[in-house]
Design a protein around this nucleic acid. Structure first.
Length: 531
DNA sequence: TTGATAGCGTC
DNA sequence: TTCGGAA
DNA sequence: TTCCGAAGACGCTATCAA
């Protein structure tokens, strides 16, 4: 545990990529064999399921440190991170320190899943006693997740790439999919033969960048393929050794959630991996994302759902064909093979994302305006000659979404942020006019620069009216333009509407609160958007 | 049994 | 998903 | 150019109090 705590300290004290890479490389070349797969799991989004919840941790900390609850809350708001707050508040135990390794603590935590609350409490309190402040922080983060120390999946891939001398793209594939840190070592996982050991193993997804300034800078239109950008969830379908697997972008195995795909187990040719989008359909037309949402986290699908909103897989790329990894072939070749595969499979659950024909960028610009009519949220542009790459790479795949909506609104509440924004009011609620009243309709994450955030923070501190816990009401004076991707009816909010991806577009210092948009404007937008 | 809420996935 | 900041 | 942290809405599940 000391070793890992030391690593976390180095990582969190530095913002320099090379320093972090070196620290990780060194760790992976020298650390405890049983700890290593756990570190990879923790830093690549494979944290074990949480077995102790936040309110329990909070209560036990309050008891141990003998604090009034309000003081704990006050500390938490200042520190901005539960695990760190607790580590700082716990008294020094003065006991003999523990020498258990990282994997011991993680395995013990996992064993608590079904344990009675009293056992959990005893274990956590014991751990807090045995560990010093730095280790306690790490221990708490093992439970609550999210180290926020500037290391994520990609940096892990790069560090392992250095430590084991394997190219990042290959390595990314090796560590993809399902593996258990208790059952495997890094040496096994990163062995060249291991890529084929698991029939379910997915390929890392290739992701697109947003096209900011239109396509003309991309060169000749004939070098590019355009498709609609579908508003579903990204998926990968695998047929190997007679088995069918469906993966989500977050590398969750979601095969069982979509019984519609079960027939593909027989229909798909052997040794096939398809990249595409999971969508619900009605009358041959894709349904809004909201209808898919009811399927994502659900355990049992109702018959009604299967009838009214059946799921199909809209395929747009072929990664494996006849058992061969074909990601290095140019897109147009992969596309041809994909078309053959879809035709051969011949099942309504497997569709082909149509290619949009266009002869000039002007024509494509016109077509983009029709995106909503197609049930899509814009265009995808893919270079014909491009291989299927790993992760987000600039150059060959672009998403060109339709322009967002915008609304002018006034800030009415402010709240402090978390982590590196724990000191600042960065969390704002906005309102539109309804007659002479103001109606809150959204929160928006800050699209402001640090400089603007400081300015707003300063202003909030001088113009707050009332305090409700962490929330301050402020004089309704500051006007912002809010951008968002979509609008839907909602019961959650007083305004009756909910926005998709709301963010601050710009600070309208030129506008007064009298000039902002109204609730009626939002309602009209809602009608219009519903078509 | 109902209702609220934390947690976690999707975008 | 979005965004700004840092390397 | 790439990566990271901080942030939004939604729906479902599990859990716990009324």
């Amino acid at each position: 545990m000391q070793r890992f705590t030391q690593l976390v300290k180095i990582l969190s004290n530095s913002t320099k990529t090379n320093e972090k890479l070196e620290a990780l490389r060194h760790y992976f070349t020298t650390a405890d064999t049983l700890d290593k797969p756990w570190v990879l799991a923790l830093f690549s989004g494979r944290r074990p399921k949480r077995t102790v919840n936040s309110s329990q941790l909070k209560q036990w900390c309050i008891k141990t440190a003998n604090l009034p609850e309000w003081l704990f809350e006050e500390c938490y708001h200042t520190v901005g991170d539960l695990g760190e707050t607790i580590a700082l508040l716990l008294p020094d135990s003065g006991q003999q320190l523990s020498t258990h390794p990282l994997h011991y603590w993680l395995e013990q935590l996992m064993r608590l899943e079904k344990a009675p609350e009293a056992d959990k409490q005893q274990f956590i309190l014991q751990a807090w006693q045995e560990l010093d402040t730095g280790e306690r922080f790490v221990f708490n983060k093992l439970i609550t997740g999210g180290f926020r120390i500037g290391v994520s999946q990609q940096m892990m891939v790069n560090a392992l790439s250095l430590a084991y001398d394997i190219p990042p793209a290959t390595l990314s594939h090796m560590i993809s999919g399902n593996w258990d840190p208790r059952q495997t070592t890094l040496e096994t996982l990163l062995h060249a033969d291991n890529t084929n050991a698991d029939d379910s193993k997915p390929y890392p997804f290739y992701l697109a960048y947003a096209l900011e300034d239109g396509p003309t800078a991309l060169g000749q239109p004939e070098d590019w393929v355009a498709e609609w950008k579908w508003d579903g969830i990204r998926g990968q379908i695998i047929k190997r050794n007679g088995q069918l697997f469906v993966w989500s972008r977050g590398e969750e195995l979601i095969t069982e959630k979509f019984p519609e795909y079960a027939p593909l187990q027989d229909a798909l040719p052997e040794g096939t991996v398809i990249d595409g989008e999971i969508l619900t359909y009605a009358n041959d037309f894709p349904l809004p994302f909201q209808s898919l949402q009811t399927r994502i986290g659900r355990k049992n699908v109702t018959r009604k759902q299967l009838q009214e909103a059946p799921v199909a897989f809209l395929s747009y790329d072929l990664l494996e064909w006849q058992g061969q990894d074909i990601r290095d072939k140019p897109l147009q070749e992969r596309r041809q093979l994909l078309e053959q595969v879809v035709e051969f499979t011949n099942h309504p659950a497997l569709r082909l994302s149509p290619v949009i024909t266009f002869d000039s960028w002007e024509r494509l610009t016109e077509l983009r305006q029709q995106s909503r009519d197609q049930g899509s949220e814009g265009l995808m542009l893919k270079r014909r000659s491009a291989p299927y790459q790993v992760g987000r790479k600039r150059g060959d795949w672009w998403k060109w979404k339709i322009d967002p909506f915008t609304i002018d609104a006034v800030m009415i509440y402010a709240q402090k942020g978390h982590g590196r924004r724990a000191d600042l009011y960065t969390d704002y609620t906005f309102a539109v006019k309804d007659g002479d009243k103001l109606v809150p309709f959204t929160k928006a994450y800050s699209g402001l620069t640090d400089k603007e955030i400081n300015e707003v923070d300063n202003w909030v501190k001088r113009h707050s009216l009332e305090k409700f816990g962490p929330v301050r009401t402020v004089q309704p004076e500051l006007v912002f333009e809010i951008a968002f991707e979509g609008i839907a009816a909602s019961n959650r909010h007083k305004s009756g509407v909910a926005l998709r991806f709301p963010r601050i577009h710009r600070w309208r210092k030129d506008k007064t609160p009298e000039e902002i948009n109204t609730l009626l404007d939002l309602q009209q937008l809602l009608q219009q958007y519903k078509g």
